[in-house]
């Protein structure tokens, strides 16, 4: 059974595309046939973060319009087996997406035996975001530890549970909270919301916490999903997220500051 997973947030710039790329690459590296679709038509950058921007011939909108086949548009990743990228069009806008077109692409991916279809949502709550979440079975809601981001996530959760296809049919979209750009020092200093605060407000299960890390920018500049950087904390945290998603019970890492860790070490270690 294939699963459609939307990576969404409401607020822009919180790490949806970074997380979509990492999550899809992680699933594929664990042997699951995975496609990641860029729904940010007009502002495509999933292909950049995945380092395939120079291999784009056809895109998602071409497939929807019948100007190319899905096979022609899907880019097979050269580093990770089982990983495919469907880029967005840079020259169109979100109106080029429609329910029927998106549905036919998703159905064809399912028929082709994809285990996971990851939808990288654009920011906002307008058409593009709506199209990305409409066919989702599960949702990864990306949130930064700040009030406005949490509020927007809350908003998108409401839309997800009332306007998605699953919701329209009386079901529930499975929800996962992914906190990114987490800085334990700033949380302890009171500048940022803690993961407990965020969970208290959103009341959905926590899938993982990704620390703020310079390696994310490095990775995206070099076109390698950060999850492939086994040295970086962000990469390791994303790998934990994938394992947890697949059912493993793994404790959170990188959620305490060095200072606090040192203190506990002295106390108990």
């Amino acid at each position: 059974m294939s699963k459609v997973i939307v990576v969404t947030s409401g607020k822009g710039g919180v790490g949806k595309t970074t997380s979509s790329a990492a999550f899809a690459a992680g699933l594929a590296s664990k042997g699951h046939k995975t496609a990641v679709i860029d729904f940010d038509v007009g502002l495509r950058n999933l292909d950049l973060i995945m380092g395939v921007e120079r291999r784009v011939v056809y895109d998602f909108v071409n497939v929807i319009n019948g100007e190319s086949t899905l096979k022609q548009a899907l880019i097979k990743d050269k580093r990770v087996e089982n990983l495919y990228i469907l880029p967005a069009s840079q020259t169109r806008d979100k109106d080029a997406l429609n329910k029927e077109g998106v549905e036919s692409v998703i159905n064809e991916l399912k028929a082709d035996g994809f285990d996971y279809i990851v939808c990288d949502s654009p920011a906002g709550i307008e058409k593009g975001a709506f199209m990305a979440l409409y066919f989702a079975d599960e949702a990864i809601v990306v949130t930064n530890p700040e009030v406005s981001s949490v509020r927007d996530s809350d908003r998108i959760l409401g839309i997800l549970q009332s306007r998605s296809k699953v919701a329209e049919e009386g079901g529930t979209v499975k929800e996962h909270l992914l906190i990114t750009r987490y800085s334990p020092e700033r949380v302890e200093g009171g500048d940022m919301l803690s993961k407990e605060d965020i969970q208290e407000i959103l009341s959905i299960p926590l899938l993982g916490v990704i620390p703020e890390s310079g390696s994310v920018l490095q990775a995206s500049n070099s076109g390698n999903p950060v999850i492939m950087d086994k040295e970086s904390q962000a990469g390791q945290a994303y790998m934990d997220v994938v394992s947890r998603f697949l059912g493993e019970d793994i404790p959170l890492r990188f959620v305490e500051s060095e200072e606090k860790k040192g203190f506990f070490k002295k106390l108990f270690g």
Binding site: R155, L157, G158, I159
Partner: peptide, 27 residues
């Protein structure tokens, strides 16, 4: 029995309402 999220509006016409879940700021 589901959270009432920011931006959502729930109206109980001609009746009382019981909410078992949290309601969010902006709802």
């Amino acid at each position: 029995d589901r959270p009432v999220r920011s931006g959502q509006q729930v109206y109980a016409e001609n009746s009382d309402m019981t909410v078992l879940s949290p309601t969010s700021a902006g709802s």
